[in-house]
Nucleic acid binder design. Structure first.
Length: 143
DNA sequence: AGGGTGACTCGTG
DNA sequence: ACACGAGCCACCC
């Protein structure tokens, strides 16, 4: 294996958590990090998605992991080295009914109040089952 | 083998 | 409200 078993477990946990995001909803890198029990590593969550295999035969790949449903804490589709990346993410989200708006600076944004998925994280799940309670959140912000 | 980069966040000033 | 700095750590020179 190229990666340490520890890192591999992290990748696995992240991909599994992302698969829990409901169709037509979005969450943040930071929230995924909390779901897998490593709240101080939202950045590594980005690394995992960046390296998500395209190859359909891989255990986790672009087809079975809804990578497009993860955006940053500001409600913006994170800019990449390649502009097309964020564009295709926006397209993938719109394809499942998510409205993506364009800000003054060209940022591709999603309204968390409308599409956000931020289930409460129970202490007993931390770094273990990584299952989550899907409570209808009353996230109020963004405007 | 060593250092820079980045699909992030949060605390400060 | 915006700019920085620190923490994080797998990848890629």
């Amino acid at each position: 294996m190229a990666r340490s078993e520890e890192a591999q477990a992290f990748f696995h946990a992240v991909y599994s958590a992302v698969q829990e995001i409901p169709h037509g909803k979005v969450t943040s890198y930071g929230h995924i990090a909390k779901l897998v029990g490593t709240p101080q590593r939202p950045r590594q969550v980005g690394v995992c998605l960046k390296h998500l295999p395209v190859d359909p035969s891989a255990r986790f790949n672009h087809e079975n992991v809804p990578w497009q449903r993860v955006i940053n804490a500001k409600g913006v589709i994170s800019p990449r080295s390649q502009p097309e990346g964020s564009r295709s993410q926006a397209a993938a989200l719109e394809a499942e009914g998510v409205v993506v708006t364009t800000g003054a600076l060209g940022e591709l944004m999603v309204d968390f109040a409308e599409y956000g998925w931020f289930p409460r994280i129970l202490p007993s799940e931390e770094g273990d089952g990584l299952e989550s309670v899907d409570s209808e959140e009353g996230e109020s912000d963004e405007e």
